[in-house]
Amino acid sequence: MKIADFITWFEKWANPAWQESWDNCGWQIEPGVLQESARVLVCLTPTLAVMQEAIALQNAGIPVNLIFAHHPLIFSPPKSLRCGDAIGEMARLAFTYNIGIYTAHTNFDQVDDGTADVLAQILELKEVSPVVPTQAGLGYGRVGNLDQSIALKELLTIIQTRLAPSHLISSPVVDLKQAISRVAVLGGSGASYLSAVVKTGAQAYLTSDCKFHQFQESRDRGVILIDAGHYATERPACDRLVQKFQDLNLDSVQLSQQDEDFRLLY
């Protein structure tokens, strides 16, 4: 499948027109690869490390020509491109080695098998629906029910085991044995959706990048806020992308081994 056809297929599933006004989905760099057979490297964040990985794969006989990322390379228009600057260096290498960079961000967050849907599946939530609907059946976040009530401590253990976050932070609670039956999830920075989560009746909310006062607010509003980190809550969706792309029988699809969490817990 040519890259042009591959992107057309993807955009029928997760239309870039659905992105938020502040976002930058779609082509970040297209160095002239549209008519080439798609050989894809999937990552969460398009960094120099991922670009160097793509180049190393080329040198090893695996001619990667597209980095498909969740996070945009460019959020706002740069005023200049210079060697040594991260974006400038990415652009230079992309054109030198003929590697395109394409991003699916807030459009991918909303769809079936997108970032939130994958989290809901990992926690085996049932009767799932969007926390914030945006269109028929789709939207930001997911809320659903567990098969049966479990203790909060068990829920935290499941999250730790299945997502393997570098850190796991939750609201302070008096009783870790309290029963949890309804859970909301949203990959990436989702604390701003707390008011919408409260309306769903969720008892616990799994997301990331939560601030001190957002934990305070969640406690005051009766929701246990659980922060598993940006990387851990979104990286599983990259695995799902690889699975879906492999079903298309592309020439090559790989998951990046150089994606970075950017934060370590010492």
Rank of each mutant, 00 (worst) to 15 (best):
Pro172Cys: 06
Ala202Glu: 12
Ile180Phe: 07
Ala228Cys: 10
Asn24Phe: 11
Tyr205Asn: 11
Ile7Gln: 08
Cys83Met: 14
Glu11Trp: 07
Ala91Tyr: 07
Gly114Cys: 01
Asp5Asn: 13
Asp259Tyr: 05
Asp117Glu: 04
Asn98Thr: 14
Leu93Ile: 03
Pro72Arg: 06
Tyr97Gly: 04
Cys238Asn: 05
Leu186Ile: 13
Leu186Gln: 01
Thr161Cys: 03
Thr115Gln: 00
Ser166Gly: 14
Thr115Pro: 02
Glu20Arg: 00
Leu123Lys: 00
Met90Arg: 15
Ile7Glu: 10
Asp220Lys: 06
Ile159Gln: 03
Met51Ala: 09
Leu265Tyr: 13
Asp23Gly: 08
Leu34Glu: 12
Gln28Thr: 07
Val174Gln: 11
Val111Met: 06
Ile99Trp: 06
Phe212Gln: 14
Arg162Ala: 03
Pro63Ser: 07
Gln178Val: 10
Cys238Gln: 12
Gly88Lys: 14
Leu250Thr: 10
Val128Phe: 00
Gln58His: 06
Thr106Arg: 01
Ile55Leu: 02
Gly61Glu: 08
Leu194Tyr: 14
Lys126Thr: 14
Pro16Leu: 07
Leu41Asn: 03
Gln110Gly: 00
Cys238Ile: 13
Leu168Ser: 07
Pro16Ser: 10
Asp261Leu: 02
Gln203His: 09
Ala202Gly: 10
Leu48Pro: 06
Pro77Asn: 15
Leu250Tyr: 13
Phe95Ser: 04
Lys199Ser: 15
Asp227Leu: 04
Pro31Phe: 00
Val50Gly: 06
Leu168Arg: 05
